[in-house]
């Protein structure tokens, strides 16, 4: 009985992983497809650049935006794929859709999670611009290692929080079911 439960657990776990990886590949092809990239991703990235420049202006950085590029007298940065939060959003959406849950709960998780990822990404873009303008020697390591890892970890944590919320509710369902069976 114990072994059966353990192997069923392993099967479910591997099933999640297979669905997650398959969805990730599918979503990657969707966002990498040129018409989607040109019509959705680039305008979305330009919007991130405008919002970030607005925040930077409030913080006293004289910035202006050209397409997906934020410029000031001291520094300029171009927001590309990999810096627009889309990579973390791909991971998050794939994980949420791969995890068995009711569609309503998935929808709530996706809306809140994607919004949170974009807020975190805005903090990243603004802080990286500030670092580039005032501490340029720290820009490369902050950009490559620090912030990319932080944003992805936040995406994973958001997924775990959502899934744990689901698990808590599931445990209640199981307890309810066990109560009925008695």
């Amino acid at each position: 009985m114990k072994t059966e439960a353990a192997s069923a657990g392993r099967r479910r776990s591997l099933g999640f992983l297979a669905r997650f990886l398959a969805l990730l590949v599918v979503f990657y092809f969707v966002v990498a497809w040129r018409p989607v990239n040109d019509a959705v991703i680039v305008p979305f990235t330009a919007a991130i650049a405008r919002v970030s420049a607005g925040i930077l202006s409030i913080l006293g950085e004289g910035t202006h935006v050209v397409g997906t590029e934020i410029r000031s007298d001291r520094f300029a940065v171009n927001i590309e794929n990999g810096c627009n939060g889309v990579e973390t959003a791909l991971l998050f959406v794939s994980a949420v859709l791969a995890f068995p849950a009711p569609w309503k709960r998935r929808l709530i998780g996706l809306l809140l999670g994607l919004a949170a990822i974009q807020v975190i990404n805005l903090v990243r873009v603004v802080s990286l611009f500030w670092i580039g303008a005032h501490r340029p020697s720290l820009f490369t390591s902050s950009h490559t290692v620090l912030w990319q890892s932080v944003v992805v970890l936040c995406g994973v944590l958001l997924f775990l929080l959502w899934a744990t919320w689901g698990t808590g509710r599931r445990a209640a369902v199981e307890r309810h079911g066990a109560g009925k069976g008695r």
Partner: peptide
């Protein structure tokens, strides 16, 4: 019914996101 089915298919996380884990 659907919820119970999802519960059966869900992999156990084995993780609690709290202050200590953070």
């Amino acid at each position: 019914m659907a919820r119970a089915k999802d519960a059966e298919r869900s992999p156990r996380l084995g993780i609690r996101v709290d202050r200590r884990s953070l």
